[in-house]
């Protein structure tokens, strides 16, 4: 064996070392960016958050007081969005995975889902304003905002549910059908229960998306800081409140506090979703 080859083994060439250094650097940079964002928001916001910040109404356009109505507003909007997008999304996924024939109509449906996922949120907001607020006469309200959010998260619930349903083993379906179960009985009693963790994860992730969304609800949900009494009343969602506080320079402290609460809600939700997923993956891994 020649000397050249032997040295090569013990000292990899310089390009290789520089390159892997750069790759390490890019990974570290990414993690640092993330940490600096979360760190800044949490560091500056945590001091602002206390019980009264969470449970009081804002005073002086939000320069003082709390953010309670905005939290309530966000929760109401998200509730409407999830309660509508959940069933419709799961229904669509069941249709696409279990019933849909391989024809033009099915292709159109999958294409439609893809399209909807690609539409910019502000365009959905504009549409929500023209269709829900004005044309259907829902006005600026929880209903308008919630439905507009539903339009945005629907494609994600469909996709996540589809993925979950596809992982249910064909053996189980056959077992049920061979006992004389109808298609729907099989889906409802065997397929959906097995796909439930995956579907839940998808819907929860949709919730996370909906909670942080602003452009969609700006011109559909309104910006009232009063507590709503029905879904036909306007609310100001927390992200919109944050936007107003920050862009109008009302109060940096209040803005940091709102941002931290918003971030906390989203991260908590995403963490829950991921945990459910990992738990069930680990469990099904043991069994099969």
């Amino acid at each position: 064996m020649s000397a050249a080859v032997r040295t090569r083994i013990f000292s990899p060439d310089t390009t290789d070392r520089v390159a892997s250094l750069l790759l390490w650097a890019s990974a570290i940079a990414t993690v640092l960016i993330l940490l600096s964002i979360i760190g800044t928001i949490v560091y500056r916001g945590i001091g602002v958050i206390d019980i009264s910040f969470l449970l009081d109404s804002p005073r002086m356009s939000g320069a003082e007081g709390g953010i309670f109505p905005a939290i309530v507003g966000t929760l109401c909007l998200v509730a409407v969005a999830i309660l509508t997008a959940g069933p419709v999304g799961v229904g669509a996924a069941v249709y696409l995975t279990e019933y849909a024939p391989d024809n033009g109509v099915t292709h159109m449906i999958t294409f439609g889902v893809e399209c909807l996922a690609g539409i910019p949120s502000i365009v959905i907001g504009l549409f929500g304003y023209a269709f829900l607020v004005v044309y259907l006469g829902f006005g600026f309200s929880i209903l308008s905002g919630g439905l507009a959010l539903m339009f945005m998260i629907l494609p994600w619930t469909v996709r996540a549910s589809e993925e979950a349903i596809k992982t249910v083993s064909g053996d189980l379906k056959e077992g049920s059908v061979a006992l004389g179960a109808t298609k729907w009985q099989t889906i409802r009693q065997v397929v959906l229960p097995s796909a439930l963790p995956g579907i839940t994860t998808g819907v929860i992730l949709g919730t996370g998306k909906a909670i942080g969304e602003t452009a969609v609800i700006m011109y559909t949900a309104g910006s009232s800081l009063l507590l709503p009494e029905s879904i036909f009343e306007p609310v100001r969602a927390l992200p919109y409140h944050l936007y107003i506080l920050a862009s109008e320079g009302i109060s940096d402290d209040m803005a940091y506090g709102s941002a931290a609460v918003l971030l906390g809600m989203v991260l908590l939700i995403n963490f829950t979703a991921v945990t459910i997923q990992r738990y069930y993956q680990a469990r099904s891994g043991l069994r099969h």
Binding site: S169, D171, L172, E174, G175, S176, V177, A178, L179, G180, A181, T182, Q185, Q189, V190, P193, S194
Partner: peptide, 30 residues
């Protein structure tokens, strides 16, 4: 009705992810 009268047992055991009782009761229930 046909599949109810002609039962089938598969190559790989495929119990449903339910209790033993619910597995057996599945058919009668549906």
């Amino acid at each position: 009705v046909l599949r109810k009268r002609i039962g089938m047992v598969f190559q790989k055991p495929n119990p449903f992810p339910m209790s033993i009782y619910d597995n057996i009761a599945y058919g009668p229930r549906i």
